[in-house]
Design a protein around this nucleic acid. Structure first.
Lengths: 137, 137, 137, 137
DNA sequence: GTGGTCTAGACCACT
DNA sequence: GTGGTCTAGACCACC
C-alpha cells in the first residue's frame, strides 16, 4: 500500500511532496501498474491537511500520466510514459544541480561532505520507496 | 568578467538565478576576491530585467557574505567568511538538497542517475581545483 | 496582539523600524512562539505604507529566524534558533553598536549619559524577566 | 591636534565618522574653543579619501555650530550651542537604543555581554578623545 | 485568504 | 556615477 509522509516545515509545497513520493514509489517499482491510491479524503485525513491540497497533487499526477482516475472507482498507477524530451530533462537537471552545488559550496561544504549528504538522502528515499526497477517506455 | 544568463518563465526566481550564478562563479574560483560585479543598472539592462530585481539579488549576496558593497563605488567579491552557525549551515544544505532532489525526481530521474550527475559535476569541479581556491579563514 | 508604530521621515528605513519592533517584542518575551503577525496587507494598511515594505521586513525577520511563514497561512513567531556563527554575531553586534553610538554622539550625548541610558533600559528589561523567557536551545 | 581615524569597511558613512569624531573630541573637552581643524585637502590626503567627503563633514559641523569657518583662515572649534530640544534628543536616543538592543537580544546576547560591549567601545572612544568635560550652554 | 515575485519609476545618500 | 529605499500595482503559488 502507498505510504506517504509529509513535512509541514519544509520549503517544498505539500502537494509537491505528495507528487514526489508517489512518483518515486512508482518509478522505483514498489507500486506496479494498477495499484490503487488512497482516496483524496482518506489521504487528507491521514496527513491532516486540506483535501484541496491532495486533490491538486493527484491532478498533477494525472496530468503527468503517472496515475489515472477511473470514474467512481478512484486513482490507480498508470502505464508509464515520457513527459520531457531528453535534452530538456538534462538541462533542467543541470540547472538544479548547479543551484544546489553553488549553495553547498558557498556554505563551505566540500566534495566529500556534499557526496555524503546526497547519499544519505537518496538512501533514505530508497528505503522508503522500494528497490525494484521499472523501465520507461 | 562576470557573465550572467537568466531564463525567464522558469520556476526559479530571477533574483535567485543571479544569486546562484554569482555564488557558483565565486565558489568555483572563477572570480577572486575583489572582482567587481556589474553595476545594478548595467546588469539589469543587459538581462532586460528590472533594476530592483538585480538589487535584490545583490542584497542577498551581501547578506550571505559572498559580496560586499562600497557605497557609491559598487559591488565586489568579498573575503570569504563564516556567516552561519553549524546547525544553520546544515539546515540550509538540507533545504537545498531537498529542492534539488525534488526537481530531479519531478524530471523522472532516480537514484543511480542522480548520483552519477552529482558525481560528474563534483569531479569536474575538483579537477579544476576550484574548490581549493577559496578556503575560509 | 502585535502593535507596531512607525515614524516616516526618520533616517531609519521603514522596513527596519518594523524589524526592530518585532524583534524587540519577541526578544523581550512579549510575543511567545507561535504568535501570529498581522498579515502583510493588513499591517501595510494600518501603517499606511506599501505592502512591499512590510513584506520586505517580514522576509528579513524570516532570514534571521525570528519569524516563520507558513504558505497561505501567515507569519508566526518562530522557535528560537542559532542562525549566525559566533564571529558573525560579533560582527553584527559591533555594527549595531557602532550605529547606535554614532546616533547618540550625533545627538550630543557623551559617555556618562549613554551608559546611564543603556543601563536603565537593560535594568527595566531584566526586571520584567524578558531576557530569560527566550533561551535558545 | 585633532587626530582622526576612519574605517572604510564600516556601514557608517565616512563623512559621518569624521563628524562624530570631531564632535566627540570637542564635547569631551579635548579641543577647546578656537582649536584649528586640519584643512580639507590636508585631511583628505591624510585619510586617503575624497576631499568632497571631508568638505561635506566640515559643512555639517558648521551647520551644527560645532565649528566655524573664518574666511581665508580655515575651520576652528566654535562656541557650543544647542541643536535639538531635550525631548526630541531623548526620543531619538531611545529609538536608537531600542534598535540596538533588539538586534543584540535577537543575536542571543544578554545583559552582561551587552554592557561589556558598550563599555569597551566607550572606553576606546574616550581614550582617543580626551576626558575633560565641557558643558553646553 | 495568505505570502512571494516582478515591474515601473521615483527619490535619497554616498563618493 | 554608485547602491538603497519606497511606492504603485500586477501576477502567481499555496492553502
Amino acid at each position: 500500500m502507498l505510504e506517504l509522509r509529509i513535512v509541514t516545515g519544509s520549503n517544498v509545497p505539500l502537494y509537491q511532496q505528495i507528487v514526489d513520493q508517489v512518483r518515486w514509489g512508482v518509478a522505483s517499482g514498489a507500486h506496479p501498474v494498477g495499484t490503487p491510491l488512497p482516496s483524496v479524503r482518506a489521504l487528507a485525513e491521514q496527513l491532516v491537511i486540506n483535501p484541496n491540497t491532495v486533490a491538486r497533487a493527484y491532478a498533477d499526477l494525472v496530468r503527468e500520466g503517472v496515475v489515472e482516475t477511473r470514474a467512481g472507482k478512484g486513482c490507480f498507477v498508470a502505464e508509464p510514459r515520457k513527459v520531457y524530451a531528453d535534452e530538456e530533462r538534462e538541462r533542467r537537471l543541470d540547472a538544479a544541480l548547479e543551484s544546489f552545488l553553488s549553495e553547498a559550496l558557498s556554505l563551505g561544504y566540500r566534495g566529500a561532505a556534499i557526496r555524503s549528504a546526497v547519499e544519505q538522502r537518496l538512501a533514505r528515499l530508497e528505503s522508503q520507496g522500494g528497490t525494484r526497477k521499472r523501465e520507461r517506455r
